[in-house]
């Protein structure tokens, strides 16, 4: 088996790649954790406006340590800052923005993505405490649903699968997956390979993917900057 740790993209590189697809002026919701890195990699000259479920649009970066205002946090409960054009609103309005289809892109993590676009990212199905947050609302209603994920699990099993085995977050909702090895669209119930890192062969990538990869035009090299923070 190929040692992926030498060749796969870092989380920062996956986030960088996803950021390249966000249009100027887009309204974007970033999931808690690794997807939040996308905000730091916006291409020069483009300005997306970020939404957070707890009622803030167009917030600024994290404050300096010691400067936190705990009335001013994001959905991950981390301190954020104001910037010109920030807006506050209550939770029902926040989810009217989500459910009403006003967000251009939502970017989330995943346990599994199926070839038909089904997403499982909220429950490992093994007991413990279930916690869904806003994920089920986001995946049904934003115009584009992008997933950022390692291509395989820590044990090496495919995360892109024929059919999800874990409890679903949403059905037929994911439109594009940015993995540590490739960029894959979901189109008409199929995985369509758009880009892959040059260091992996098509056959190896297929072996690490739980459902057929289809072609629709040329597959580009997926090349990201090396020096991302």
């Amino acid at each position: 088996m190929t040692d992926l740790s030498e060749i796969k993209l870092s989380n920062a590189q996956i986030a960088w790649r996803a950021a390249q697809d966000i249009e100027d002026g887009a309204y974007v919701n970033l999931g808690i954790g690794f997807p939040e890195m996308v905000a730091g990699f916006q291409p020069k000259g483009r300005q997306a406006i970020f939404h957070t479920e707890n009622g803030v649009l167009n917030f600024g970066e994290a404050p300096e340590k010691g400067q936190e205002d705990w009335d001013l946090i994001n959905a991950g409960k981390k301190a954020i800052t104001l910037k010109p054009g920030t807006a506050f609103f209550h939770h029902a309005d926040s989810f009217a923005m989500v459910r009403g289809g006003h967000l251009d892109v939502a970017i989330l993590g995943a346990y599994e993505v199926a070839q038909n676009g089904d997403l499982a990212n909220w429950s490992t199905g093994r007991g413990g405490v279930p916690a869904v947050g806003g994920a089920m609302d986001l995946v049904q209603s934003a115009k584009r649903i992008a997933v950022l994920t390692d291509h395989v699990t820590k044990k090496g099993a495919p995360k892109l699968v024929e059919k999800c085995s874990l409890p679903l977050t949403g059905v037929k909702c994911v439109t594009r997956v940015y993995t540590s090895l490739a960029v894959i669209d979901i189109d008409a119930g199929r995985f369509v390979l758009r880009e892959k890192i040059p260091a992996i062969s098509r056959d190896t990538l297929q072996a690490l993917t739980g459902a057929p990869l289809h072609d629709d035009g040329p597959v580009k090299d997926l090349i990201c900057p090396e020096d991302l923070a």
Binding site: E53, H91, A92, F95, V132, G134
Partner: peptide
């Protein structure tokens, strides 16, 4: 308390929770 069965949990998606209250 949840794992001991001493408290009951109704899990509701956040937007559904907000809209149910609204």
């Amino acid at each position: 308390r949840y794992l001991d069965g001493r408290i009951t949990l109704d899990i509701v998606p956040q937007g559904t929770l907000a809209e149910r209250i609204r």
